[in-house]
Design a protein around this nucleic acid. Structure first.
Lengths: 337, 337
DNA sequence: GTGAAAGCGCTAACAA
DNA sequence: TTGTTAGCGCTTTCAC
């Protein structure tokens, strides 16, 4: 293993000079710099991460805590994680992958050991048990998601309330009066995961203003669950003509069932989804949708975190504005029936 | 920040004693151990990761390199990654998340800096450019996937050749003679990703032995691509009655299109998928399938790696035996037509 | 613009 | 069974 000392000898300078060439923390003459850089190349030197962490009290590692559960849409998680890792690298950080399994203990472990300089938490619940710990430490952190109380925390998320409102507005504009919301699995609501509840709130309050009726039904993914859910919806509200779906694994079953019931999309019923663009485009009907900007969320989270680490001021809450893309699954309500 | 020295003072012992209590590398009297453990508790001590890494020349970190691309089935990747992280923790390791973006450079960086003790590579291609580097270093590594030349490498993967054979056997037993294989996106084959080609080889060679005809078509996911692919298949081989699908985002489109063409599953055509059980169960027809054991793959990869790190012998190639689960999408070929 | 040297917190010989 | 001590490779004062 090549050490900094060896580089110094090889270049005919002192260890500190090599260190400063690397860090750029003091000016170096052009000649010296070149010789040092040449030696680094020739010897294939890589600074030792442990030594660096010990001496500088910085690990250059960001911890990312992903949920262990997989009842939520996994590709979104993965896309966020990859965006986090990619963006972190551009700022000189590596990413440590923690699962939710350890829970609050992981926060303590990482904070206490100096393993990571900062952390990003995904899948934050409204009243998350990790939050007190984060508030009580000086380790910078960013949440992807929005808990009930954001004081003292930095959060990045899609503005789900605005998302819900946007969906309902679009349907209202098309003349729909009875809206059914097909939501995430019941467990998601029971855990009080922020995004699901906020979508619903935004949607309901806008619907109230616009005078629309809303029926909300959580739904496990898959065909069997969807069959039941859909039957109940039409049973309770036969005049439903607009659907808002926030559950990727319910999208295709819903479309298939509607087809089977000879309800044409968008002639008889309109469907709008909250999902990644890829899902909207690949569905059997190209779906009008509000996109979940997974990459953007991961990227912004890292940028907020790096700003904190650099001692720059950060926003407390970054809410990304939802964007509606109109495709082939929504249309004006039928005037014939 | 609490240091080992502070714990030592608090417990009235020397630093090394505290260290040995932690590592268990020499026997400690019960009394001393208790006092030390008590001090650790009281002071809330966590060993400093950097210092430990520097002194012991071990980071207790495993690097996991995930593909940047997302044209493959992402949930499988995520499930593997989570299984890796979870299993690694049970062995005292943390996981560093690297994306494929840096390519071979990431291998150099991690190896050279001592950031990680070992690495796991996912999405290995037949002739992967990272392999020479791995062979040339003494850093232990495990591949998830199987390259063309496995010499000097440890690999974990599903036995995809056996998987392909198993699919074809099942269809043959049911009397099908003309088989269509709907594969991954063309890009996957162009990159010569091992698993896709091996499935095909296993399938073809068994089909030859059994005297079946096989038509293979790569397919991007989604409905549009599937429509085209399916049309071509029936155009070229009108007598096709058996489908093998190895592409999660083609599964549902295929089923929907068959339905639309009034080809009943499994009465008219049989469909067997290579996919995670969850996908098979949630599809609109419960699919006969060979499971992709994502968790098992992640777990085994870590276990192989830990064995190497502990200096134990390891298998060169661990091929997990495929398991066929018969569900509702396959049946005997119709004798009426 | 450069060098010398004192740690950072821990591990693991070597001693006792 | 326990203590003493010399590093691990780097960063960063302090000195020139």
């Amino acid at each position: 293993m090549v050490t900094l000392a060896e580089v110094a000898t090889h270049a005919g300078v002192s260890a500190s000079t090599v260190s400063y060439v690397l860090s750029g923390k003091r000016s170096i003459s052009a000649g010296t710099r070149q010789r040092v850089e040449r030696s680094i190349q020739e010897l294939g030197y890589h600074p030792n991460a442990g030594a660096r962490a010990l001496a500088s009290n910085k690990s250059n590692i960001i911890a990312l805590m992903v949920p262990l559960r997989t009842d939520m849409y996994v590709p979104v998680m993965m896309e966020i994680a990859i965006a986090v890792a990619t963006t972190a690298r551009t700022h000189g950080y590596d990413v440590l992958l923690l699962t939710g399994e350890e829970g609050p203990d992981a926060v303590r472990r990482v904070t206490g050991s100096g393993l990571a300089d900062a952390m990003i938490l995904m899948d934050v619940e409204m009243d998350d048990e990790r939050l007190p710990l984060l508030r009580g430490t000086d380790q910078p952190s960013v949440l992807i998601g929005l808990p009930a109380d954001t004081s003292g925390l930095t959060c990045v998320d899609l503005d789900f309330a605005a998302t819900g409102a946007l969906c309902v507005e679009h349907l209202a504009t098309l003349g729909h009066r009875d809206i059914a919301v097909i939501g995430e699995a019941p467990g998601v609501y029971e855990r009080h995961t922020g995004f699901a509840e906020r979508t619903l709130e935004g949607l309901r309050s806008r619907a109230r203003e616009l005078g629309l009726r809303v029926l909300h039904r959580p739904c496990e993914g898959g065909y069997d669950a969807m069959t039941l859910t859909l039957a109940r919806i039409f049973d309770e509200r036969p005049d439903t003509t607009g659907f808002v779906v926030q559950n990727e694994s319910a999208v295709e079953p819903l479309l298939a069932l509607l087809r089977r019931q000879s309800r044409a999309v968008p002639e008889d019923v309109s469907v709008i989804a909250v999902c990644p663009d890829q899902v909207a485009v690949q569905a059997s009907v190209r779906l009008t949708s509000v996109a979940i900007p997974a990459q953007e969320m991961g990227r912004r989270a890292v940028e907020q975190l790096v700003a904190k680490l650099d001692g720059r001021d950060t926003d407390e809450v970054v809410l990304l504005a939802p964007e509606l893309t109109i495709r082939a699954s929504t249309g004006p309500v039928s005037t014939l029936s």
